[in-house]
Design a protein around this nucleic acid. Structure first.
Lengths: 350, 350
DNA sequence: TTGAAAGCGCTAACAG
DNA sequence: CTGTTAGCGCTTTCAA
């Protein structure tokens, strides 16, 4: 017989009654806690299955944990982030935790809103991917709830970090291009003005790595940086500026694949072909870089590994909140493709 | 003097005491409910600000609402979905609701896990984007919590739907290609085997729309469908099969932009250029279709509008759960680009 | 219009 | 090992 009354949700008390035990025992079985005999466990398990019981997360949260992990993403359009998210969710897949994501939120205000909302909802841990918020806000959040910050250099006493070695990644690109014979290698960077964030942002590290590598290769005089943003439009504008130079670069290192996309647009518009007229490299090794019709040389950041490291660190911190913080730095690798080649007219003058 | 003790969170009771009113009054002000004088409201507002009070969502959820909307996405890698998410979040921006997303989960099992988790967390409403779960599961969820299903045809008594008119969208592509002079127009579809879902899936509608339009244009004999999947690889394999045909098509309608991406790969590999040797059209009008180096003719689905319609419907349903369900169908538009052109060797033989 | 008090479903002390 | 009981922070009757 179907019940047409509003189907009140099964509670822990229903399970207890059905299994003829106390709420406490059911609760213990639920959390795999010590203090329930195998016989009891079995009875409870059966009752849970028979009644289709599911614990109410809000009620749990009021006393203990919510078994929820919040992941804040800066921009879901950037195809690098799905890899990180996959790394996180795969790691937590085997646990009782559920991962929920805060919607793409570039900007301090939006970030604050999302992180506060996650704290309000009693999430057990937060993973903040490439946040742009000022340091003090990150610290404050981390003091309220276990937090791991991904993609931001520098270290904190309150949160763990996972970053890619952007400095080295940039050097990989410069070395690759220099090895091909390029000398005038330009870089399109994301302009960071806020001094508080400056040193911590990956874009800064990449620009710095570029400069240092250029000097190391004896190309210090040819350092040529255009400041725009890590967006498609930024790449488009960046190329326009570079093409206005009295001496055009023979190769361009775009700080992100998305920038390279816009750069490709601008180059096509200018009637220049890649890599014949100019070599182009990106950063992030997104799936679009791999497209045969684009075939963009790029730096692979191991997004999946980044995500699983972050997940593991977060889990450790949830388990022991006073453990000293850790900083994980992952090494990127260069993926050479057809968008980079030796310069046709050897750039030997100077 | 800084307090170094564990900073217990400010509760509604603290606010009440500080404002010298009752918890009830504070609660009413919080929810903008009727029954508090302007003077009281002001006092409470000030106390909230001074104490930096934020309501505990878990506690609220135990009695009333959690002010949380869950959005389930099938695959965050598909660049169409960010538009929908933006539409949703933009709509809810002005409200007290917070949007949280379930991580990309292709497959019934993963979908069930995420939706159940959202129900467990007492979310006030769910938006399921292009779910693959069987109908009965969707109905069950919708009976537990207000739900809007996006991107799935057919209608339900329990949930509202927002879909794009995929049938018409496919026809737009066929007409466009036929107008250009193409006759042998092939289609790469996503194979759907489950009869329970068959008619409801957008991919089915697109294939059907393609067939019908071909007949309408008197090209019924030339209908040519390859069944793979809506993935990059699906597009790659699809082209390989089409090129093996005794008579190759002069134009290909890929069921999704992501499929067209893979198709471009396969075409490049085969040494064929687009649109000189073959015309190619996609579906979704993702930002990558717009890239000048790709310039893919595609169908725009108005993802942002889809999202905001879904948000509005959900909000309406949360307000009145017994309102009859609504089905919103949005009209797609064709965005012609350089990947489609008149066939070079007119396909006039028959 | 205001406030006192009773829960919501669960976990954590503590008693048996 | 098991059960009783007291809250967690909020909303919601229901009196005053």
């Amino acid at each position: 017989m179907e019940q047409h009354a509003p189907p009140r949700r099964v509670t822990i008390l229903d399970v207890a009654r059905h299994a003829q035990v106390s709420k406490t025992t059911v609760s213990k079985v639920l959390r795999n806690e010590y203090g329930a005999s195998p016989a009891m466990r079995e009875k409870v398990r059966r009752a849970i299955a028979e009644l289709g019981y599911r614990p109410n997360a809000a009620a749990r949260g009021l006393r203990g944990q919510t078994y929820t992990i919040g992941v804040m993403l800066p921009d879901i359009r950037n195809p690098f982030f799905p890899d990180v998210v996959d790394g996180v969710t795969d790691w937590f897949k085997e646990t009782d935790y559920q991962v929920l994501m805060g919607p793409g939120c570039n900007g301090e205000e939006a970030e604050a809103r999302v992180t506060e909302a996650m704290v309000d909802r009693g999430m057990d841990g937060l993973i903040l991917v490439a946040p742009v918020s000022r340091r003090s806000h990150l610290e404050r959040i981390a003091q309220l709830v276990p937090t791991v910050v991904v993609g931001r250099h520098g270290h904190s006493a309150h949160y763990d970090t996972v970053v890619d070695d952007d400095h080295t990644g940039a050097a990989l690109v410069v070395d690759h291009l220099a090895d091909l014979g390029h000398r005038h290698i330009a870089h399109i960077e994301h302009l960071e003005t806020d001094p508080a964030r400056l040193a911590e942002m990956p874009n800064t590290q990449r620009a710095q790595g570029y400069r240092q590598a250029m000097h190391r290769r004896g190309l210090g005089d040819l350092v040529d940086v255009v400041s725009t943003t890590y967006t498609q439009e930024g790449g488009y504008l960046g190329i326009q500026q570079l093409l206005d130079r009295p001496r055009r670069p023979t190769a361009v290192f775009a700080g992100a694949d998305i920038v390279a996309m816009g750069a490709l647009d601008a180059l096509a518009e200018a009637g220049l072909s890649v890599p014949q007229d100019i070599s182009l490299a990106g950063y992030d090794n997104t799936s679009f870089a791999a497209l045969r019709s684009i075939s963009l040389t790029s730096v692979d950041q191991a997004g999946h590994a980044t995500g699983s490291h972050a997940a593991r660190l977060l889990h450790d911190r949830i388990t022991d909140r006073r453990r000293p913080t850790a900083q994980v730095k992952l090494s990127p690798t260069l993926i050479p493709r057809r968008s980079t080649a030796a310069p046709t007219a050897p750039d030997r003058e100077r």
